[in-house]
Design a binder for these strands. Sequence first.
DNA 1: GCTCATTACCCAATCGTTTGGGTAGTGAGG
DNA 2: CCTCACTACCCAAACGATTGGGTAATGAGC
Lengths: 345, 345
Amino acid sequence: MTGIGPGSVTLKDLAAELGLHPSTVSRILHGKAETARGAAAPVTAQRVRDLAKKVGYSPDPQATSLRTRRTHLLGVIVPRLSDLVLAVMYEGIDEAADDANYSTFVMNSRDDTSIQRHKMEIMLSRRVDGLIIGDAHLDGNILDELAERKVPFVLMNRAIAGFASATCDDTLGGALVAQHLWDQGHRDVSIIAGEPYASTGVDRTHGFVSRFRALGGTIPESAIVWSRFDTLGGHTAANSILRDTDRRPSAIFAVNDFAAIGAMGAANSHGLHVGRDLAIVGFNDTSLAAQLPIALSSVHSPMHDIGRVAVKLLLGVLNGDAVESIKLLPVLCVRDSSDFTWAAG
Amino acid sequence: MTGIGPGSVTLKDLAAELGLHPSTVSRILHGKAETARGAAAPVTAQRVRDLAKKVGYSPDPQATSLRTRRTHLLGVIVPRLSDLVLAVMYEGIDEAADDANYSTFVMNSRDDTSIQRHKMEIMLSRRVDGLIIGDAHLDGNILDELAERKVPFVLMNRAIAGFASATCDDTLGGALVAQHLWDQGHRDVSIIAGEPYASTGVDRTHGFVSRFRALGGTIPESAIVWSRFDTLGGHTAANSILRDTDRRPSAIFAVNDFAAIGAMGAANSHGLHVGRDLAIVGFNDTSLAAQLPIALSSVHSPMHDIGRVAVKLLLGVLNGDAVESIKLLPVLCVRDSSDFTWAAG
DNA sequence: GCTCATTACCCAATCGTTTGGGTAGTGAGG
DNA sequence: CCTCACTACCCAAACGATTGGGTAATGAGC
């Protein structure tokens, strides 16, 4: 009878064992300091706590939620966890949620609207206290619905005007890359811009273009190629950029490391040596970037912290605070793939 | 009053609205066919279902679990979701769990015993119906405890004798690589073997070594280097292998793509051109392998299916079935990093 | 010795379901 | 006309915790 694990012993059991009423035990174990003090004599309280620890009492969260209408559950929706960026953010969420005694569901929506809806309904039917949305689309349809239904939520990674979010300062990140490539002498550049519905790609692209133009450069619309965020998407996009041998750029900015890796593959198959014939810069500085055969320049974004911040924001919302979006600072990491001084013009 | 989302309307509400008793409504909506038929006249049943759909009734899972002692929750523990391999497996889990109307918690243990324990306790205190363990260590200590506590669980990715698991046939996978490298003329090979506590690395290494020896080759113990599973681990291991210029192998088998990528980086910094001066083969065939500047040969393992199978096994266990471990078949994918015929000897 | 506050508790309702066990009402069979 | 089996429901007790509201017993104050 040595506690075969949580779930075996209840509040009532403890109370019976101690000759107390369950409510008294409850107040002692779970009440705030004041309640607890009012509930029992210090010596009784200690007896209760001792026994609880000895038998390994752990309250039934289902019963608690039923009564309190709070599950201490958070829902997280991401496009795909196999996207390293989201996976790392989720690690941050996992950590922060644990610290705050919350547990999290995480589901993949594959950026598909109907799956997004489906997963959301599952989460809500599970009665999560709030949602962290990592797959927001710029049209924001679903978010408006959520807001109308008064579901507490925050965005992560991708920002949408009007909603609280935890992101990287993507515009700044893009600008950093533009500055770097400009300084290296590149005047003819292309951008692999990601999916048009994702603020990450859009903002990084916008930040890049603005800065590059501010420096006096030109970027025709045709130099911006939308793509999927994975290696294959990057490969395809780079192919379409490099196919045109008349007007090949000397540098490519991919808004995502994986797309950048795909672009490296494409460059290779076009006989171009990355870092010498063609500069490539990625974004996120995932753990692979520095380890690639040709080390990839990339903008470091604090992915882990973004996850942590998302949790903090959401807990703020649940607490009724007015929360503000937070943009974390990116840092450019220059490596072999773009570290080469080009003759200007 | 148009249902502001799940959670607003209860069985009792429905019953009152229809002039029925909650129990009747419950039987109609949630009972098995027979119960439902015995519970009400067909026309009544239809009225109930219509109203339920109209107001968007969704049962409170907390209340249900409290009564039934089943949460329809599964716990998943992995070393780290930022390991693409585990992330993809989790996508399979997510899918299969959804199909079966289960939801999953997933937590990262970083392969740290105390975190493993901690996360497990959280899961159990949440009253999950069962666990999928993706971070089992060969010593199996924690698993024995779990078994003793009669917690339903299955292993995933890593196998441990005596427990049901869903894995790749790692021994075979290793053998495939050995055969391939041998056929390519390599006689002097090294292995980046991963963490010694993980069956994946151990079995892949063992499969490789056995086959290579069976073919007549020799592999000294010193040619087997244990390492972390990430790029950095692979880099470090490869460095230690390549440092010894007297006895440099012509090929390296890394039991994991990320380690292989790290090894490529190391080879590079030693001035070796992968695929020409040194063959490298990875494992898992993650989506990156084919896209790298030098495409990486790798053993394809059905990660997504492994996740799905893990869920199927666990549901079997929950159902009281006697389940057997399942090993899915690996397939070797040869690419540039090892596609070169060497002169023998 | 009486009032009054304080201490240290107990009581019972409640959260939303499920489920074993009724029970009126109907129709058939004998 | 009585019995018996259905049909179509209802009743109430759980599941485990929380929480607003008691209430005896003790001690202090006057």
